[in-house]
């Protein structure tokens, strides 16, 4: 891999706080190495801004290895930028070339209000999990782990759904700001496992109700979520959610 340096123009969303109105600012960065990660490029820019006496750009990030789900940038019109199955922190500058202009925006959704610049509030996801994204088992209640054999196929499917990192790229990419992929991943994981059966119906009804309450949009099956999901969560989970929801709605007595 040949390394190269580049000069870039960045068009970045700046917003002081949730209530302020924001706007784009234009920045120039020079001598960016193709080996840098996208966030390291932002580090360089922020260092430069601080030394110039200007406000650095606030953005969310933590593990920088693609698993914590904290980073969240909408880069050139795509959640987490141009690479497939990737988070912003794992995007590297060799995805760009000298002279490029890069537009960076925060996740846009009513349910994810902007906190500052590129940071958004994703606590709606926590509240959806609180509504039922768990198995009610107190510490110490468990039987021996191998007392409950689980079909490998189901276990593998549950794992694939559980790989969700809760970053919100699905919501960001969806034209309707729908959170169906996120919700369906958790519903699927638990519906596929025998441990999840006792609360199966109430879980799906409550989680969907909370999702609606948080003002996420509806799923219209464009599948943009799956295409932009850094962990490749499949939309077949959304179908499972629909199935679970329909059957629970029909059988509930309330």
């Amino acid at each position: 891999m040949e390394h190269y340096n580049m000069n870039l123009t960045l068009k970045v969303w700046k917003q002081k706080n949730t209530n302020a109105s924001g706007s784009f600012e234009i920045y120039q960065v020079k001598d960016i190495s193709s080996e840098m990660s996208f966030l390291e490029m932002f580090d360089v820019l922020n260092e430069q801004l601080i030394l110039e006496g200007k406000e650095p750009i606030a953005f969310d990030h933590d593990c920088r290895e693609g698993i914590c789900g904290m980073c969240s940038m909408y880069i050139n019109g795509r959640a987490h930028g141009p690479w497939e199955k990737n988070t912003t922190c794992q995007l590297h500058m060799r995805a760009f070339k000298d002279g490029d202009t890069i537009v960076v925006e925060p996740w846009r959704s009513k349910a994810f209000p902007v906190i500052k610049d590129l940071m958004v509030n994703r606590s709606a996801f926590d509240r959806i999990i609180q509504a039922g994204g768990y198995i009610s088992v107190n510490t110490g209640n468990a039987q021996d782990a191998n007392a409950l054999p689980i079909d490998k196929k189901n276990a593998d499917d549950a794992f694939m759904a559980a790989a969700c990192i809760g970053c919100g790229a699905c919501v960001a990419a969806c034209k309707n700001s729908s959170a169906m992929l996120f919700v369906s991943a958790k519903v699927s994981q638990l519906a596929l496992l025998p441990q999840g059966q006792p609360e199966r119906e109430s879980r799906v009804l409550n989680m969907v109700a909370q999702m609606d309450k948080e003002a996420f949009g509806n799923c219209t099956n464009t599948y943009a979520c799956e295409a932009e999901c850094p962990k490749g969560i499949s939309v077949s989970n959304i179908a499972r959610l629909n199935r679970e929801y329909l059957s629970a709605s029909l059988s509930t007595e309330e």
Binding site: A145, N146, A155, F159, L190, L193, Q195
Partner: peptide
């Protein structure tokens, strides 16, 4: 006990074809 607790919570550990951990 940790493994028991985690399995009860629905943690999807890797399994063999027989369904055991």
């Amino acid at each position: 006990s940790i493994i028991d607790q985690c399995v009860a919570q629905g943690v999807p550990f890797a399994r063999e074809y027989g369904g055991l951990l």
